[in-house]
Nucleic acid binder design. Structure first.
Lengths: 248, 248
DNA sequence: CCGCCTTCCTGAACGTGTTCAACTATGACG
DNA sequence: CGTCATAGTTGAACACGTTCAGGAAGGCGG
């Protein structure tokens, strides 16, 4: 033990930390005492998921490895599946970061799209085995992990923003009405690629790479064709169907 | 009594059953003694799934309701999720049956497709709440319940057969190469509709109905456009991408 | 120093899906 | 009828995710 036990030390008793810096220090919720524990649990969980797989990692193992009680994990995370949301957010940020350099330099639409898609697969590649299992959770419509859920809304918006950048930062000429819908459509296509990737059991997931390389020129061609007069009605039909289906 | 007890009776000794009729009677696996139990368990399970939901129905409840031990259910079904395969098969057959009358009379491609899609939703409608949960299982790529798995291959082939009928029984004129691939493509589209339906929380799943009504004319138009010269290269591109992606 | 509140943390206990060694029924063979 | 193998059946036991009543920690007002 250190210092006097009889008097309340006037200093906040910060032992030897390198200054907590810009911590807002909310009255009710004081400093990030537990935030550290939260991160510890999350880090441990994601590491074990990667090492052993999702189903094979028990909550007891996570708690033991992190040096806390099993109930403590449930103080910070509602369920085992909620631990995945952390993975989700991290990879979303990593995807944006990985795509940034290309989006800053390249101007060609197809090249931008292709780069973003491959970057997304690159970022997720280490987690392919794990993703297949966790996808099970994300697929349930009622789950907060669903990419369409309200809880995922921030992550979804961030993802769509990448594709908005793909479109708006490019020199491509598109039908203006399509241009407005394109980012969301591309994101939906990206979800399809992810779905394919999750199911892709080929070595190194090369089928997914092929799919991207084959689909991008196709999308590029279709986007260019969108200004063709013969296809006007068909395009209108597609767009109005989108509206119809999104409503309610 | 009749005949000598010391000699093996020449007749096979069939007590008092009302003639088992055309039962093949395989040597190793004799009559369907346990097949009855199997059906009892499956019926009970599906009923409880419908009444209470999938997650809320415990294996113990199924066993108790069926009047058997819990272990007995596992003698016939590898897991709780495997009970779903039964649901899967039954609805597949119901879909084919529901679509049959229309496919026998209607000749117009769009009408045939539309009818088949709506029939599929009709058949599955009573199970919408339950399907959302069970979809979680089907989504896992490694699961035998996945529509792409080897175990689901018979059901998948049967489903594709419906769409082959849609194409071949219609008077539509299509690019011959596309015509060959069309059934599988339509099945894939149907999987997409099901995916949408599972996520559809609108009252009566009317958004799914709208999607079908909107998408069918679109597909019809695209199929007709497939013979247009300007679109030949694009079509070739789509088809070769399909080949590329299906390989390995 | 003393209560007192909130945040943080604990581990036993509950209900679940699943397994398994043991038991019973059934029919085939001599 | 006796014997034996196989199909069918049992329920206790296991490991898991999750819950919960309660305890510790750390500040805050007196």
């Amino acid at each position: 033990m250190r210092s006097v036990p009889t008097t309340p030390a006037p200093e906040p008793a910060e032992p030897a930390e390198p200054a907590p810096a810009a911590e807002p220090r909310v009255p009710g919720r004081s400093r990030a005492r537990g935030e550290q524990t939260r991160q510890l649990i999350l880090d441990t969980a994601l590491r074990l998921f990667r090492e052993r797989g999702f189903a094979e990692t028990t909550m007891r193992a996570i708690a033991k490895e992190a040096g806390v009680a099993v109930g403590n994990a449930y103080y910070y995370f509602d369920s085992k599946e909620h631990l995945i949301q952390g993975f989700y957010d991290r990879n979303q940020a990593a995807h944006a970061a990985a795509a940034a350099p290309l989006l800053a330099s390249e101007k060609d639409f197809a090249a931008r799209l292709r780069g973003v898609l491959h970057a997304g697969i690159d970022v997720n590649a280490p987690y392919h085995a794990f993703a297949a299992t966790f996808f099970k959770s994300a697929a349930e419509p009622t789950s907060p992990l669903s990419p369409f859920s309200a809880e995922s809304s921030p992550a979804r918006e961030a993802a769509i923003a990448i594709f908005r950048d793909v479109v708006e930062g490019s020199s491509v000429k598109v039908d203006p009405e399509l241009r407005r819908e394109l980012p969301e459509l591309l994101w939906l296509g990206w979800m399809g690629v992810v779905l394919f990737w999750v199911y892709d059991r080929s070595p190194g997931q090369r089928r997914t790479r092929r799919l991207i390389d084959g689909a991008v020129p196709l999308v590029d061609r279709l986007v260019h064709l969108s200004r063709l007069r013969v296809l006007r009605p068909a395009l209108r039909q597609v767009l109005s169907l989108l509206e119809l289906v999104k409503a309610d």
